[in-house]
Design a binder for these strands. Structure first.
Length: 275
DNA sequence: AAACATTCCTGCACGC
DNA sequence: TGCGTGCAGGAATGTT
């Protein structure tokens, strides 16, 4: 479900809801493992601490406390929601973890497919955590420049779409936003990264940032499962040019959008607009 | 009922 | 040859 815009949408809502130094009071596990075992004991070391902020790195959410972070990844179908007052006992089929914060209430992580992650990092050096140490650049970081992006493409033999989705290179971009950014840049997803010209790469750099920012404004894309914290679907899928539009007509040239599996992922492009 | 937005791991191919 | 790296493919799973 979630790529950078969806995670960022959720982050903003969680940060807004939880800001103000709320105390982390309790963790309840309804299931001991999702994709990986949930380190309840280690997470419990943060009990009693005030939540400083909810942050994001790549597609990970970070609950930051004075002595460490709770790390959450939504996988394909993960979600966070707040249990409304008075229904603090109500649990749904795929609720796995509940975090209690003073005053703010109870926050539930649900994930039917269980590809998500809940982990913890004690200490402030989160970049050294094993899930973070190999991550690539943040596409929306203010210090990420066009020249940096050109460097990332240098010599890469993989198809450009796979390269964009490689979290060791660039983070936050998944199947949807790689497809959309490549369409807007008129680059065919199958082309090798090293065959992308300098001019095209400069445009691609812009389009990646634009498409991510526009999607954040629209509250993300909802293909099927994604919901924000207040159970709202995203709107950005309505403006997709190619993702999920195989056999439909291109919004620019009115030719037929094609799809094909590339590195195991369904890939969409317009054969006329993208070379 | 085939497809699916995620990451991680394995194994192959290539080049020094 | 041996090693490291880059890349492709598959697995994990429940829902529609």
């Amino acid at each position: 479900m979630p790529e950078l815009p969806e995670v960022e949408t959720l982050r903003r809502q969680l940060d807004e809801t939880l800001k103000g130094g709320l105390i982390f009071e309790r963790i309840e596990l309804l299931r001991a493992d999702i994709r990986d075992p949930i380190p309840k004991k280690k997470i419990s070391q943060l009990l009693g601490e005030p939540l400083l902020a909810v942050e994001r790195r790549a597609k990970y959410l970070l609950f930051r406390f004075p002595s460490g972070y709770i790390i959450s990844h939504l996988g394909m179908t993960g979600s966070w929601r707040r249990l409304a007052d008075g229904q603090s006992a109500s649990k749904a089929a795929h609720d796995h973890v509940i975090l209690d914060f003073s005053v703010a209430g109870r926050f539930v992580f649900a994930d039917p497919r269980r590809f998500g992650i809940l982990d913890v990092h004690l200490g402030s050096d989160i970049e050294r955590h094993k899930r973070f140490s190999h991550l690539g650049r943040e596409p929306l970081a203010t210090d990420f420049r066009a020249e940096d992006f050109l460097q990332l493409l240098k010599g890469a033999k993989a198809p450009i779409k796979n390269h964009l989705m490689n979290q060791k290179v660039l983070v936050g971009v998944g199947n949807i936003y790689a497809s959309e950014a490549l369409f807007r840049s008129k680059i065919r997803p199958t082309r090798r990264a090293l065959r992308v010209t300098r001019a095209e790469a400069l445009q691609l750099f812009d389009e990646i940032q634009k498409v991510l920012n526009e999607a954040i404004v629209a509250g993300g894309s909802t293909i099927r499962d994604y919901r924000s914290m207040d159970d709202q679907a995203g709107e950005f899928q309505k403006t997709h040019f190619v993702y999920g539009r195989q056999d439909e007509l291109c919004r620019i040239c009115h030719g037929k959008i094609r799809s094909q599996f590339l590195a195991g992922r369904n890939t969409f492009w317009c054969p006329k607009c993208q070379q």
